[in-house]
């Protein structure tokens, strides 16, 4: 039933002459919940930015819903990795989330719908009470939630989250993944995360990103697969209920 939503063919990208990703091919079906895992510097963020169209591939093609990323970018929701930039910028939580509703018609005030959508997004992350606060007065974890709300306010078909839980406590993480699971009923979701233990019961597939990409459609990594040399810094990852705990992979102690 499901159609491929993302098709990447022989994609290569290098940054200042050093290859970050080489010859990556990847097909992802609609409404998958994909976890990007892999070591630091393995190219996870670069891959996301290529999929978003913020970076241009050196070689290869990316088709998302049959189009180039730049053409379809308005249907993406994106949570960047770094949410602590521009620390002194005077802007309210509401105005940050409203960016998800861009572009606006010129001159016209924001429509009621835009505000309602932004408030709904904030509410789903339990941040509505902070809507009039300056974003710089919030903690890292709260800021993270505001940026997730901004991505949700776009009402995207595909959601990209680059380490969305880096600043969030464990209860917040569980809540966030439960919310993503709910959203996954209608949206395709990509998440970069090192929370492999928590993730395992929510995702539908795993992509190990380390210069190349190995995509596992069944969201299950076996010892054999690791032995074949996927080099993922994963100790255990399992899918479904009840959780399956896999043995720690030998020689993978970091």
């Amino acid at each position: 039933m499901k159609d491929p939503i993302i098709q990447v063919n022989h994609l290569s990208f290098s940054y200042n002459g050093s290859p970050v990703l080489s010859d990556v091919s990847l097909t992802v079906m609609e409404k998958e919940f994909v976890a990007f895992i892999g070591p630091n510097g393995g190219g996870k963020t670069t891959l996301i930015k290529l999929l978003l169209g913020l970076l241009k591939p050196d070689q290869g093609t990316i088709k998302i819903m049959g189009q180039s990323p730049a053409k379809i970018a308005h249907r993406f929701g994106y949570v960047p990795q770094d949410v602590s930039f521009n620390k002194s910028f005077p802007i309210s939580v509401m105005d940050v989330v409203l960016m998800g509703r861009l572009p606006f018609h010129r001159w016209t005030r924001l429509s009621r719908n835009d505000r309602i959508a932004a408030q709904k997004a904030l509410e789903s992350l339990e941040m509505l009470e902070f809507q009039n606060r300056k974003i710089n007065d919030l903690s890292g974890g709260q800021r993270e939630r505001v940026f997730i709300a901004r991505a949700l306010a776009t009402d995207p078909d595909i959601l990209f989250l680059d380490e969305p839980t880096a600043n969030i406590d464990s209860q917040g993480r569980t809540d966030l993944y439960a919310l993503l699971k709910e959203l996954n009923k209608t949206k395709t979701i990509f998440v970069v995360s090192h929370d492999t233990m928590v993730l395992s019961s929510y995702i539908t597939s795993v992509a190990c990103v380390n210069k190349d990409v190995h995509y596992h459609n069944d969201a299950e990594i076996t010892k054999e697969m690791l032995d074949m040399g996927y080099h993922c810094p994963v100790e255990l990852i399992a899918h479904g209920i009840p959780h399956r705990i896999l043995k720690t992979h030998e020689g993978n102690n970091d």
Partner: peptide
């Protein structure tokens, strides 16, 4: 406002 705060996101929003 969007460009000044987060130009990558502004670009994504067209």
């Amino acid at each position: 406002l969007a460009i000044s705060y987060d130009d990558e996101f502004a670009r994504l929003r067209g």
